[in-house]
């Protein structure tokens, strides 16, 4: 009986989605807004090869600020609601292969993360993706060496300073540039090179550090409250 209800609800949801499918015919050209972003003179104003990054950090930069705030809020609530209770856990010893391999891999994964967020304005990637890769290195570290002293203060400070630099750079744009989050406060450089697009690589690097530190703190929080029951 209950299963029939569930099937009916899902079928009704499918019927609700069907008109969207029916009306979709594939776009033949860009929308007005997107073609504004893709026009040559507007691309040269921002000078970022990756247009998604241009949208995320400059045109819709305020949304990114809100997004970073939401992530911070989530991390804060998690830290608030998990109370540490230090239970001595009886852990199985990790194998030698796993430990040695993670010693080799952790620095490489961190390097890839830094590469991804520093090249966010040139290639696919950016602060959030790079930060997630950094956090995956921290996961590997926590799994391979569960008893390693985790300096959560350091991560908390990295995170706060990165957030402040992000907001500060955005505010400098409002003071000396043409508006909040204007990226032309630094020289725009040559199109397609690492040091180009003005403040975008700087802002995105700090976003990457902030996201990486935040996610690492969340993971450490989760790991420290684990128990064996």
């Amino acid at each position: 009986m209950k299963n029939i209800f569930i099937i009916i609800i899902i079928a009704a949801f499918g019927v609700m989605l069907y008109p969207l499918f029916e009306d979709f015919s594939g776009n033949d050209e860009l929308s007005e807004l997107a073609s504004f972003y893709a026009q040559k003179e507007n691309v040269e104003k921002v000078n970022s090869a990756n247009l998604v990054t241009a949208v995320v950090v400059t045109y819709r930069g305020l949304d990114t600020l809100g997004e970073v705030t939401i992530l911070f809020l989530a991390a804060a609530i998690i830290a608030f609601s998990l109370r540490k209770h230090s239970v001595e856990r009886d852990l199985r010893r990790n194998s030698e292969i796993f430990k040695t391999a993670s010693k080799v891999l952790i620095p490489i994964i961190m390097m890839v993360g830094v590469y991804i967020f520093m090249n966010g304005h040139l290639s696919p990637g950016g602060g959030f993706q790079g930060g997630a890769v950094l956090a995956s290195a921290v996961i590997l570290m926590l799994l391979a060496f569960p008893n390693i002293p985790f300096n959560s203060k350091l991560f908390a400070y990295t995170e706060s300073i990165s957030g402040l630099v992000f907001v500060g750079l955005a505010a400098i744009g409002a003071l000396i540039g043409s508006g909040y989050l204007d990226n032309a406060i630094l020289p725009l450089g040559t199109f397609g090179e690492l040091l180009s697009a003005g403040a975008i690589p700087v802002i995105y690097s700090f976003v990457g550090l902030k996201v990486g530190a935040e996610l690492s703190n969340i993971l450490n929080e989760f790991q420290s409250v684990q128990s064996d029951n």
Binding site: A38, Q39, N50, V52, V55, L122, S123, P124
Partner: peptide, 28 residues
């Protein structure tokens, strides 16, 4: 993809790339 490089020329980008705005939205 909306990434301008050797294959996607800057002058003709409007006719070569997909919409970057929903992609930025999905990132969020």
């Amino acid at each position: 993809a909306p990434i301008l490089d050797n294959t996607v020329a800057l002058d003709d980008a409007v006719n070569l790339i997909v919409d970057p705005v929903p992609q930025a939205l999905v990132l969020t």
